[in-house]
Design a protein around this nucleic acid. Structure first.
Lengths: 350, 350
DNA sequence: TCAAGGTGTTCAATCGATTTAGCAGACCTA
DNA sequence: TAGGTCTGCTAAATCGATTGAACACCTTGA
C-alpha cells in the first residue's frame, strides 16, 4: 500500500527527506555516488513509491489528463479511441481520468468541474461521431477536441478526413474499371458531416475520371443493414444501362444490406457488383462473405494525436488547428472489375 | 481554471479560510445563517471550486478509483463494462482512472504502482472475457475482479452466470418443442471457462426435460462466422433422424455462420432450424435476418456491481465473494417450434 | 462585579512531497 | 592563522485544503 513515506526512506538511509527527494529525482546536486546508492537501496528495501497527490500539490502538475466522452458504451469505436489516448498518455507517464457523459449537459458540467478540481494537466473532449459540437462552459483553454470540431473558439481538434476517405473508396472502384458508381448515403434529418464530405470526395473522383455524375446513383437510406438492402433494391431496379456496377456505402452495416439485396437477385459479389464500405467494423466487414473492402476510421490514431497535442509533445504541430486524419483503405475481396456486359454498355454509351 | 483558491473566497467574504471551509462543507459548527450565505455567495462570485488534490492529501481520501483493464480496444464489450463502472462511480462522486494494459505484465505493474501512488480509494481489475487470472503483485487487498476470477487470494469478483445462461438458452428451445438440440461450442486449446459452464447448463436442461444427450450434437468450431458455418454443415450432414432441429451457439458470430449454412441448404430460420446465440452483439444479432434470439452478457451490470462493491456501498453483500451475474435472454425471431417432420420422427423414436 | 457559559470565528498544525538558501566542515592558500 | 572555496547535506517554506483547539466577546446569574 501507499503506507511508506519519503521520511521512512530517509530514516532507513540515515539522511534527510531532502536528500532522498534529490536522489530519487536525479537532481543535479552534488551528492556522492555512495550516498545516492544508499538512498536508492533504502527506497527499494522499504518499498517506497511516491505519493503523487502530495507531489501534484507541490509541483502544480499532476501528470493526469481528463478525457470527457459523450458515450463509450454504444459504439464499437470508443475502445480504439480510448486505447490510442491511453497509450499516448502512458508513454509520457500520464494517467487518464475517463468520464462518460452520455451527452447529458449537467453531467458534462460536473465532469468539467471535477476534472479541473483534480488539476488535470490537459483535457480532451471526445465525440464518437465526427460532428460539430457546442463548446461547454468551463472547458479549459488548451482542451483538444477529438472526433469533433468546436462550433466556436480557438481549439485544436482532430477529425477523420472523410473527404479523402470518399476519394480513396471511389478511386478504388474507378481503378477497377467501374464508371457507374452509386453512393449509398445516409438518410437523416441532420446528416452527419461525414455524409457530405464523402460525397464531395465521390464527386471529385468522378470528375477527375471524366465521369458525369448521375443523380439517380446518389441514393439515401437508413443506416442499417435493412436500410442498405432496401435502397440497393431500388438501385437494382434501374434499367440495365443505368444500373450501377459498384456501390460505395456510407458504412459497413449498409454494405451488409447491399450483400443481401444482391444475393436475393442472384448477383454475386464482386463478380456482378462491387462494394466498398466505410468504418471497417470488424464484426461486419470481416465477417461478410466475401470480406468487405472498406475505409477504416482512424480512431486509434486520432486518440493518440489528441493526447499528444494536449500534452504538448507535438510542438511542431500548428497550434489550435484542425487535423484531418487519413482514413486508409482496407482492401478485401468485394471489388473487382465490372461485368463484361456493363463494360460494353458503358463503352457503347461512350 | 483552478486559479481560484479558498483564500480568495475568504478574502471576498471577509472571513478566514477556516470559515469558508466549514461553510462549504456544511460542517456542524455554529455559524450564523447570514455568514454562511455571504460565504456561499462569495464562492459563487469568484467561481471557486476546491482543489481536490490538496483536499485528497489532507483527507487521505481522493475520491478516485482505478480501473485496470486487459484490453478496451479489441472487444465491443469493454464500453458497456466501463459505462457501468463509470455510472456507479459518478453517482457516488468518484472519478475513475482508466488503464489499458493489453495484458502486458510490465504495463500492469506500472499501472498498479501509478494508481496506488495516486492514492486511489479503490481498485478494479477487469478482464474482457470471463476467465481465471493470476493475481498481479502489488494489487491492494480490496481490489474487485471484474469479469474474471482470481486464481488465488481472497477477493470479491463478479462474472457472468454462464451456466444459467446456457440453461435459459436451451430451455427456450425445449419450451418451443425441440428435442434434438445441438450445442455449437468453441474449439480452442484452452477453451474459455464459459464454454464448459454453458455446456453444463445445456446438459442440465436436457436432463430436466428427459432428453438423452447425443454426443454427436455437441460439436466444436472456430469462434467466427466461418467456423459456425463449417461446423453447422457437418451437423446438417447428419442423417435426417439424428439431425438437430435447433442449435445453441457459443456466440452470436458463430450463429451468423449457422444462418449462412442453413440458407445454403435452402433451410429457413426459424421454420426449419431454430437458433439461439450468446453475447447479444448488436452488430451481429440485431442485423441478422431474422434477428437472432440470444443471451445477453451483463457487462454494464457487472461494471456497476464491481464499482459499488469496491466503493463499499454494498455493505449487505457477502464480503470477498464471487457474484454470478444473470445473463438475460433476448427474444427475437430465430426460435420457433420444430418442423413437423422432425417432431414426428422424434415421436417415432420415443 | 465576577465567574461561568455560549457564540462566532480564527490559529496553526497537518497531509507528503519538492526545492532554495544556507550551514557546517574540510581543504587550500597567502 | 585567517580568509576563501568547495563539498555534502539539511532546514524550512511551500502547495491548498481541513479541523481541533483556542480565543475574543457577549450574556447571564449569583
Amino acid at each position: 500500500m501507499g503506507r511508506v513515506r519519503i521520511s521512512d526512506v530517509a530514516a532507513a538511509a540515515g539522511v534527510s527527506t531532502s536528500t532522498v527527494s534529490l536522489v530519487l529525482n536525479d537532481r543535479d546536486v552534488r551528492i556522492p555516488h555512495e550516498t545516492r546508492e544508499r538512498v536508492r537501496r533504502a527506497a527499494a528495501e522499504v518499498g517506497y513509491s511516491p505519493n503523487t497527490v502530495a507531489r501534484g500539490l507541490r509541483m502544480q502538475r499532476t501528470r493526469t489528463i481528463g478525457l470527457i466522452s459523450d458515450t463509450i458504451a454504444t459504439t464499437p469505436f470508443a475502445g480504439r479511441m480510448l486505447a490510442g489516448a491511453q497509450d499516448a498518455a502512458r508513454e509520457h507517464g500520464y494517467l487518464v481520468f475517463l468520464v462518460d457523459t452520455e451527452s447529458d449537459p449537467q453531467v458534462e458540467q460536473d465532469a468539467i468541474r471535477a476534472l479541473t478540481g483534480q488539476q488535470v494537466d490537459a483535457m480532451i473532449y471526445a465525440a464518437m461521431w465526427h460532428r460539430v459540437v457546442d463548446v461547454p462552459k468551463g472547458l479549459p483553454a488548451g482542451t483538444v477536441f477529438l472526433d469533433c470540431r468546436p462550433a466556436t473558439g480557438d481549439f485544436s481538434a482532430v477529425v477523420p478526413d472523410d473527404r479523402e476517405g470518399g476519394v480513396s473508396a471511389v478511386r478504388e472502384l474507378v481503378a477497377a474499371g467501374h464508371r457507374r458508381i452509386a453512393y449509398l448515403d445516409v438518410d437523416e434529418p441532420e446528416p452527419p458531416v461525414a455524409s457530405a464530405l464523402r460525397h464531395e470526395g465521390y464527386l471529385a473522383v468522378l470528375a477527375e475520371a471524366g465521369i458525369e455524375p448521375d443523380p439517380a446513383l446518389h441514393v439515401r437510406g437508413e443506416t442499417s443493414a435493412a436500410g442498405g438492402r432496401q435502397t440497393t433494391e431500388r438501385l437494382l431496379d434501374l434499367p440495365a444501362d443505368r444500373r450501377p456496377t459498384a456501390i460505395f456505402c456510407f458504412n459497413d452495416r449498409m454494405a451488409a444490406g447491399v450483400y443481401v439485396a444482391a444475393h436475393r437477385r442472384g448477383l454475386e459479389i464482386p463478380r456482378d457488383l462491387s462494394v466498398v464500405g466505410y468504418d471497417d467494423q470488424q464484426l461486419v466487414a470481416g465477417e461478410l462473405d466475401p470480406p468487405l473492402t472498406t475505409i477504416a476510421l482512424p480512431h486509434y490514431e486520432m486518440g493518440r494525436w489528441a493526447t499528444e497535442v494536449a500534452l504538448g509533445v507535438r510542438a511542431h504541430e500548428a497550434p489550435r488547428s484542425t487535423r484531418l486524419m487519413p482514413c486508409p483503405i482496407v482492401r478485401r475481396d468485394s471489388v473487382s472489375s465490372p461485368p463484361a456486359a456493363a463494360t460494353n454498355s458503358s463503352r457503347r454509351r461512350a
